[in-house]
């Protein structure tokens, strides 16, 4: 996660989120996810992306996330090769337009969000790929 550059403002799992463009490989249309039998927590399945399996995040397994209200229309592919299903793309926020603050300690999203980005009167949770991956690994270790 970076506080430099620009951010993609998206709606995912019913939340307004900011994804740093520096953390993104690309955003592509949603593919049919092949569910993994006995899937690990946090991963709903895989899609074939550029000839390889790409794991797709299961928002519902993450603390502070609800069951998505709408089907995802796209997926943001993070640099560490993880697909984030998103329901809507709202726009791009540039650095001068945004201010940052730390996420509240009691916010259940602390496990995967690196802070809050304030822009256009909205507080967006900043998705932190490092924290998210660490959380997914922790899930696996706990199993």
């Amino acid at each position: 996660m970076s506080e430099q550059g620009s951010w993609l403002h998206v709606r995912a799992s019913g939340m307004d989120l900011a994804l740093s463009t520096l953390d993104l490989r690309e955003v592509v249309g949603m593919e049919t996810v092949s569910p993994l039998p006995g899937r690990p927590q946090g991963i709903q399945g895989v899609v074939v992306f550029q000839g390889e399996f790409l794991p797709v995040l299961a928002w519902v397994d993450l603390p502070g996330c609800a069951v998505p209200t709408a089907p995802p229309m796209a997926m943001a592919v993070l640099r560490p090769r993880l697909a984030i299903p998103i329901e809507r793309m709202i726009g791009v926020i540039d650095a001068p337009a945004a201010t940052f603050r730390d996420i509240d300690e009691d916010d259940p999203a602390t496990g995967w969000a690196g802070g809050l980005l304030h822009a256009g009167g909205l507080d967006l949770r900043l998705l932190d790929p490092d924290r998210l991956i660490a959380l997914l690994r922790r899930f696996r270790g706990d199993r």
Partner: peptide, 23 residues
């Protein structure tokens, strides 16, 4: 056979193969 990426490692599954009827 394609291996599963680390984040998708699942007990008992070695990997997958894209077939006519899905994976």
């Amino acid at each position: 056979l394609r291996s599963l990426p680390e984040l998708a490692h699942t007990a008992g599954i070695m990997g997958g193969s894209v077939q006519e009827e899905g994976i």
